[in-house]
Design a protein around this nucleic acid. Structure first.
Length: 899
RNA sequence: GGGGGGUUAGCUCAGCGGUAGAGCGCCUGCUUUACACGCAGGAAGUCGCAGGUUCGAAACCUGCACCCCCCACCA
């Protein structure tokens, strides 16, 4: 496509390959000082793939987790929105794989009939070629060539994202097997009477030259005019006035219609009108379905060939059809002097003519909802033609039931309503397309007009034996093949082992924009052809939007995920996607977020670097069982345990954002900002307690091990890179067990103690800040607490001194002039060494007013008898306790302030 | 015309019945021997408006306003 010189399978950044080789020769346990994702992304992807990690492992029958990729269109490159969904899928795939499931995630691409054909037509147009000059066969060849490039590009993009797809099972909707599936499905539906051929007014795109389905028409409110036109009527001298937004279609009128019960128009009953310009006689029909008594003049022009409602009316009243607009959007010979004119030009001319003839009584401004082609934005023309349709009603009913019963569930749940709404008002589906790129309709018409619909190309007509057969030139709507995807990829209609093993799939992840196009139809097709729903959960994600101009304008084209990966690394892009995956309908991406994720990746890298340096060649507690863990040890293990269960819980609920946040908060603020700082003195301290050091190292190792595993689904590359250094088992994190929350490690006591420690440290630091004292200057802290509290604080005292950089710490009453306060329930005094006490900068006053405000609220609450009576006792007690604490604080702060 | 979603800190968004949260941005300090893609401290929100339910509502109910999306054959 753009001459990508890279190996299509491993299209990673040039230059990285050499460094990878260099790395391999040096089995250093140290991480590079600077975090450079380009250094190892390719290496790990190659390793995983070569070692078959992306293929389902484990015996058939063991718990499995299966997804099929929503096949991207082979129209070009993936954009930043595709990469979003694929990332979420890969997070699920990796998570489930680590949980021990036999994971299969099937890759593939979609031929995307109309979209791809359009792209090639444009390419040809650049060379001044029209596809008709080329002919069908040559044209389709060109598309195939294009498809090969596009497929490679797409595949390489997905690889760089790190997606663990089983490439040995890659499929394309036009592959022979899948084409067979399409043909089989068509024939079956035809025989069941669920596919029929008929002449109807359909949505027609004059530019694409094909019919499209209702879903492919995009309605837009447009300013138009409602023209009032007078038709002569025999015996009614004033004539009849009809209102229309499309005067050019009047040339195809074959009747006027009135409502049978409308007194305004009763005078036209049984009369004959004369079509202006053309002079054709038009019967006046009475049609209560077509005519709305409330609207307009009560007289409607009937144009069967150019309006679906009029067509239906014409069927009822056996009116002739006159086609005045052709498939190219130009007026036909039937339009007489207007023949050859574009439909919109013709409108102007006809309006002019009517005005000249004094038949135009007015043109009121009118808002109309105009259909546009989803692909090329051309105004859709209702066009009378013979097309193939799927009778959807019988397919929809069981598909509705499947969702009602919960066999299929939508996440987020709100989409269920949307699904029902659409399914319960579903219309037949026009599936034939007048295109060249796609699955040819397997219908063969003989010289005598008999239609043969067969799985094998027939040699002779089934009805009359004629050997003069011609295949329908049309192809099928792309979505006709896409709807079979969850089972056609496994070889259906053949009874393959894969089909047996892997259908139905488990989860489908896709954008909500194709809920009707694809998801609903897959549910219908799955139930109909396979007798079971194609997946049990549909996770519909939002659509990606780029924030402002920050990304596109100043920084070039970040719309391509590869650009983002080059700049920030695949892990950072993935983490950004995960943390942006809220349950809303739009996902806003911007550079700042990407940069934030890259920082997070770097943070993990550096934390690992530090940890590895502490572990390298040093003894550590192998098992933590039965060891004398310190409070910080117990605290971080407790937090780890909580984080692990949170992440698992959020992933199970498809809350990738919450999962990412839990991971982020733990890793950054608890492990790095908290624990690492707390163990530094232990690790490097001169207290000679080698036992404590070993334990601390053991805890560090456990934390890093679990953090890497926990983070792996989100950030597979860098976690695997670190894992190698940590464990010496390269490329195995992907198949290592995912951490499970360990309730035995939950330790509320340790959490309380360490949180208090951290609050005390913070209080000292902000005391310094308020007094404008530098962090290195001495501060004295005194603490008055209950014996148990004091005991707990005493064990943390060295840490408290170190982290708060106290010059002095003691239990007992504050010294004179100290700032008093209550922190986590203990009374404290904060003092600067004698003589050097700069004035308080308003900190106390601010705190005091906050405290007083809250005291006011709480005491009002506690004075309210209704609250005491009706609120749960536990809440009342909590409120009392809180009030007592605040009062203590007020007292303490007040004392200091008065001095 | 029908249906759905939104309105919370400057920005992007979580929270959905018991003391307002995150990331980014902002302010102020800091060569604390993993990390300035860093550390520490801080400011910042009548949770769209009006009623109602409740001891208690950003969360539940009812209206209203404004935004977004989807569906629809009203000339």
């Amino acid at each position: 496509m753009n001459g990508d010189p890279l190996d299509a399978r491993f299209p990673f950044r040039p230059g990285s390959a050499e460094s990878v080789e260099a790395d391999r020769d040096k089995p250093s346990r140290k991480l590079a000082k600077t975090f450079d994702p380009a250094h190892f992304e390719e290496r790990w992807y190659r390793t995983w793939e070569e070692e078959g990690r992306f293929q389902p492992a484990g015996p058939p029958g063991s718990p499995r987790f299966v997804m099929v990729i929503p096949p991207p269109n082979v129209t070009g490159r993936l954009h930043i929105g595709h990469a979003f969904g694929r990332t979420l899928e890969d997070i699920l795939a990796r998570w489930k794989r680590m949980l021990g499931y036999r994971v299969l995630w099937v890759p593939g691409t979609d031929h995307a009939g109309i979209a791809t054909q359009m792209v090639i037509e444009k390419e040809l147009a650049k060379q001044g070629i029209d596809r008709r000059q080329l002919g069908r066969e040559k044209f389709v060849e060109r598309v195939w060539a294009w498809k090969r490039d596009a497929k490679d590009t797409i595949q390489s993009q997905i690889r760089r994202l790190g997606c663990s797809l089983d490439w040995t099972r890659e499929r394309f909707t036009l592959d022979p097997d899948l084409s067979l599936a399409v043909r089989h499905a068509f024939v079956q539906l035809y025989r069941e009477g669920l596919i029929y051929r008929g002449r109807y007014v359909v949505n027609w795109c004059p530019r694409c030259g094909t019919a499209v389905s209702d879903l492919e028409v995009v309605h837009k409110e447009t300013d138009g005019s409602l023209y009032h036109i007078r038709y002569d009527v025999s015996g009614v001298p004033s004539g009849a006035v009809v209102a229309t937004t499309r005067p050019e279609t009047m040339l195809g009128d074959t009747a006027l219609a009135i409502h049978p019960d409308d007194p305004r128009t009763a005078k036209f009953r049984g009369k004959v009108a004369i079509l202006p310009i053309v002079g054709r006689e038009l019967p006046v029909i009475e049609d209560s379905i077509l005519v709305d008594r409330e609207f307009g003049t009560g007289v409607v022009k009937v144009t069967p060939a150019h309006d679906a409602n009029d067509f239906a009316s014409a069927q009822r009243y056996h009116l002739p059809e006159v086609v005045v607009i052709g498939p190219d959007g130009k007026m036909t010979a039937e339009a007489g002097e207007y023949a050859g004119l574009d439909r919109f030009e013709a409108r102007k001319e006809i309006v002019k003519r009517l005005a000249a003839e004094n038949r135009l009584l007015g043109a009121d401004p009118h808002r109309i909802s105009l259909g546009h082609c989803q692909r090329c934005d051309t105004v859709i023309e209702p066009y009378l033609s013979t097309q193939w349709f799927v009778k959807v009603g019988p397919l929809a009913r069981p598909a509705i039931r499947a969702v009602e019963t919960g066999e299929v569930r939508f996440v987020p749940e709100m989409w269920t309503k949307t699904y029902f709404e659409w399914m319960r008002n579903i219309h037949d589906w026009c599936i034939s397309r007048q295109l060249w790129w796609g699955h040819r309709i397997p219908a063969f018409t003989c010289a005598n007009g008999h239609v043969n619909v067969t799985e094998e190309d027939p040699a002779a007509c089934e009805t009359c034996g004629s050997e003069d057969l011609e295949q329908d030139p049309d192809v099928l709507d792309t979505w006709f093949s896409s709807q079979l995807w969850p089972f056609s990829v496994f070889g259906w209609p053949k009874k393959t082992r894969d089909l047996d093993d892997f259908y139905p799939t488990d989860v489908l992840v896709t954008g909500y924009d194709i809920l009707f196009f694809w998801v609903a139809r897959m549910i219908m097709a799955g139930i109909h052809f396979m007798e079971s729903v194609p997946f049990s959960t549909v996770n519909l994600h939002g659509l990606v939007r780029l924030a402002g101009e920050k990304m596109s304008k100043t920084r070039g084209n970040v719309v391509d995920p590869l650009v983002a990966i080059d700049e920030f690394g695949a892990d950072a892009l993935r983490f950004t996607y995960a943390s942006s995956a809220t349950s809303g309908t739009t996902v806003t991406l911007d550079r700042e977020r990407l940069a934030g994720s890259r920082s997070f990746a770097t943070k993990l890298w550096n934390a690992a670097r530090f940890t590895l340096s502490q572990l390298d060649g040093k003894a550590r507690a192998g098992s933590l069982e039965g060891r004398a863990l310190s409070l910080p040890d117990r605290w971080i293990l407790s937090r780890l345990s909580t984080t692990v269960s949170d992440v698992n819980r959020h992933l199970a609920a498809f809350r990738f954002d919450e999962a990412a946040q839990a991971l982020y908060g733990f890793l950054w603020h608890e492990l790095c900002d908290g624990y690492l700082e707390m163990v530094k003195p232990v690790l490097s301290g001169g207290d000679g307690d080698e036992n404590a050091r070993e334990i601390a190292r053991g805890v560090l190792e456990r934390c890093l091990t679990d953090s890497l595993a926990l983070a792996h689904p989100f950030m597979p590359f860098l976690t695997e890179e670190i894992w190698e250094k940590l464990t010496g088992r390269p490329g195995t994190l992907i198949v290592s067990p995912y951490p499970a929350g360990d309730p035995a490690r939950l330790d509320p006591g340790a959490e309380r103690a360490v949180e208090r420690l951290r609050s005390l440290v913070t209080r000292v630091r902000n005391f310094r800040r308020e007094r404008r004292v530098s962090p290195t200057e001495p501060v004295v802290l005194t603490v008055e607490a209950s014996p148990e509290e004091s005991e707990e604080i005493r064990t943390l005292e060295p840490l408290l001194r170190h982290l708060a950089r106290l010059s002095e710490f003691r239990f007992g009453p504050p010294e004179d002039g100290a700032q008093r306060d209550v922190v986590s329930g203990v009374a404290v005094g904060l003092a600067l060494p004698v003589g050097t006490a700069p004035a308080d900068r308003g900190g106390v006053a601010r705190r005091l007013s906050q405290v007083e405000g809250e005291i006011g609220e709480l005491s009002a609450k506690l004075q309210n008898p209704a609250f005491l009576e009706r609120a749960p006792g536990e809440i009342v007690e909590k409120t009392r306790r809180r009030l007592r604490e605040l009062e203590e604080r007020r007292a303490a702060l007040g004392t200091a302030a008065s001095e």
